[in-house]
Design a protein around this nucleic acid. Structure first.
Lengths: 144, 144
DNA sequence: CTCATGTTTTGAGTCATTCAAAATAAGGCT
DNA sequence: AGCCTTATTTTGAATGACTCAAAACATGAG
């Protein structure tokens, strides 16, 4: 794991680029999300506490809040799951969640048209965005 | 409010039709959802406790769980909100949520095609259902 | 190197929800 | 009509996810 150094440098760069101070907890959190691209605060905490003994779940929440506000992270809240964070922020993609094990994968917008962006009747609402979540069985859970 | 009697009878009927015993809390919960078609457990509790002094939020959760399992209610979990319950269960409609005040309205599937039901790439998932949530400003919050 | 400011730590508290055991009521049966 | 089994509600407690606030600390601009 000698590549950690360069990785950490790259992560630090994106933190700095977002106008935030670079700290150990922040780099560690970003690295954890790199490892598992759809992850919740608790998992992040468990994933980094060995290398950062002084950290707490609250600290992780603080980092995640700062990152989300800075546009470095996107927060998604699928049903039956704590909030998940992902680094893919600059496109409007969707998600597919395994109804058995909770695994999450990205799904690109259906090609050819912007699906579901125009509801048939918006009840007078001014539509700003559309969120699409697919539910199904992941490859593993299909066999089991 | 003399119509309450007939209303209660109709509600009792649908509870019985779902194979469940008819009780005061159950009728009250269903009536509360009738009054406010997208409502969470806490609001239901506050809405019925005057007429049912002995009730608790836990009881409401119990009723809601039984109803959801029996297919009498649909549970939705929009981001930034506790779970909401609605009586429209037999069609696959979607929702539009006001990003300012949280108001929720139903949205029918866009006509002509089943939008978003076929993700461009499902990563090997066996897709079972698609959930679409629109976000925007409700008529009230547009002016304010 | 120093200092102001942004971050993290620490400790406590809230909200939504679940669990389990005891008390109670519904409604089929006689 | 009344009893009894079983479903349901009550009561009390606990959990998980997240937020808040004050004090300690580190970053990086100067």
């Amino acid at each position: 794991m000698t590549t950690d150094v360069t990785d950490a440098a790259a992560l630090a760069d994106s933190i700095r680029a977002a106008g935030l101070k670079v700290t150990e907890p922040r780099v560690a959190v970003l690295a954890a999300i790199e490892r598992e691209p759809h992850i919740d605060a608790g998992r992040i905490f468990r994933s980094i506490r060995s290398s950062l003994p002084g950290t707490s779940v609250q600290a992780v929440h603080g980092v995640l809040a700062a990152f989300s506000q800075a546009g470095l992270l996107r927060r998604i809240e699928p049903a039956h799951s704590p909030a998940l964070y992902e680094r893919r922020v600059d496109d409007n993609h969707h998600h597919i969640v395994c109804s058995a094990c909770g695994a999450v994968e990205d799904v690109d917008c259906a090609v050819g048209h912007s699906p579901c962006l125009v509801p048939s009747s918006a009840s007078g609402f001014q539509v700003q965005s559309a969120e699409v979540n697919f539910w199904g069985l992941c490859p593993n859970c299909q066999t089991a």
